[in-house]
Write a protein that binds this DNA or RNA. Structure first.
Ligand code: NAD
Ligand code: NAD
Lengths: 205, 205
DNA sequence: GGTCTGCTGTGAACGATATCACAGGTATAC
DNA sequence: GTATACCTGTGATATCGTTCACAGCAGACC
């Protein structure tokens, strides 16, 4: 199945909205309702849902439980994804707090730093370990995904270690593009760029 | 000038890399060098640079100082962009620390929270003010851009207040799509989605 | 039962983005 | 001075993503 990155992003958002909607008791949604929530078009929503294989009903729309299950089957690894975080600074702390308990399929199995004053501290329930433990934990827990929240200067060497240790996917918060070999997926979260984009594009609307 | 969002993102990255490169003494770069740094193609880089109007030299490539100036002319508001941040929690703190002193054209003029224990505190050099001051500061400083780092539940009402007060661009960290009227630009920074995207797409590489 | 309404599923048209490929130019080597 | 190598700028082309438009279907209403 060759799902495009764009589609995966939207599916993630749909699911989040649907989980809320499910809590509020609604049993089904129409494509145009989902579209309105994300400021998109109904056709786009239907096409995305088509790709995950869930199917709706001519008059009653899509069953919420059905959608959540179908999307989860595509987005989540059934075995769960084990994740490490490197760089337990301000942003690392925020990320740990955010992920905690959000999606059961995503499990943080280690947080690492090289600052002796951070090592041993417990942050949002996760004990910060020494960066020296990195390779051992990745191997022991079969970690596939890593989050980099170190300063920009060390992001590339940290990335290289992660990849060498077997990590296949990286979420990079450092404001530096990372060089990785074929077969490793990097997702940038670039806050500086987001800000500059807004300041630039706001002026031309 | 109708610069596409994609192009603006890349320009932002080029500039950041060029500023570093400038510090290391290099006077000029070739399109293929920039391309390699961002794992892109040389043709893409040249096209982006063409759009900002800077021009290179057949044999010497592009002059770094020239590029930085040209890109800045497009990305930055010459009058500077005044920014407020709402929600001085973990992520708000990280964002304030990150933006501080990064780009002179971006100036934080206020950080707001509704938690009495946060109000009055100084975070990374910015004093946290009461959310009651929001409209006053936006009007007084002619704020155009806002950063939302509140919990998801209040992101929409906060957004509505910002827009009503005159804000035209928003960087939204809350995991909720925001509804805004025509003429307001929203840039999502969705960490949950980034993680889910990586876990999903890593498995299909 | 027949008609009317309004939703889904999807081929086809469209629009946006990225890549190709090459003409034009300039330094360098000989 | 001529040949060579290698870079930029850009029209043409290919790829990718979104929207259109409509057939098909299911319930509601008479
Ligand atoms: N704060 C933000 O909103 C924000 C936004 C965008 C990008 N970033 C980037 O995210 C990164 C972290 O930001 P922050 O605000 O948390 O900074 P920070 O300085 O608070 O945190 C960085 C942490 O990384 C640790 N570290 C340094 N070298 C290390 C190494 N070799 N191995 C392991 N750990 C190491 C440091 O000890 C520190 O704890 C930076 O690259 C920053 O530019 C931050
Ligand atoms: N931490 C992350 O990495 C991360 C990632 C993605 C998204 N987010 C989102 O960013 C937001 C903030 O995350 P956080 O970890 O900083 O949470 P947090 O609870 O530490 O911070 C939220 C802050 O917002 C303030 N606040 C609440 N209601 C407010 C109101 N009406 N007006 C003004 N301020 C108000 C709270 O007092 C608190 O200080 C959340 O929506 C979270 O889901 C966080």
């Amino acid at each position: 199945m060759a799902l495009s990155g764009r589609t995966v992003e939207r599916l993630s958002v749909y699911r989040r909205l649907l989980v809320m909607q499910g809590q509020s008791g609604e049993e089904s949604v129409y494509s145009h309702q989902l579209a309105e929530m994300v400021s998109g078009t109904a056709a786009q929503v239907r096409r995305d849902l088509m790709e995950v294989g869930v199917t709706g009903h001519s008059k009653r729309g899509y069953r919420v439980a059905n959608l959540i299950e179908g999307i989860s089957k595509v987005l989540d690894d059934p075995a769960g994804t084990r994740i490490v975080l490197v760089g337990a600074g301000d942003l690392g702390r925020a990320a740990l707090g955010f992920i905690k308990g959000r999606n059961a399929a995503l499990r943080i199995v280690g947080a690492f730093d090289n600052d002796p004053s951070k090592i041993g501290r417990v942050i949002h329930g996760y004990r910060c370990a020494s960066i020296d433990e990195l390779e051992r934990v990745i191997a022991a827990e079969q970690v596939e995904v890593a989050i980099i929240t170190t300063p920009a200067g060390v992001a590339q060497p940290v990335c290289d270690r992660l990849v060498a240790a077997g990590v296949r996917g990286i979420v990079n918060f450092a404001p530096t593009p990372l060089q990785v070999p074929e077969g490793v997926w990097v997702e940038r979260v670039d806050i500086a760029t987001a800000l500059e984009k807004v300041t630039c594009l706001t002026r031309s609307v």
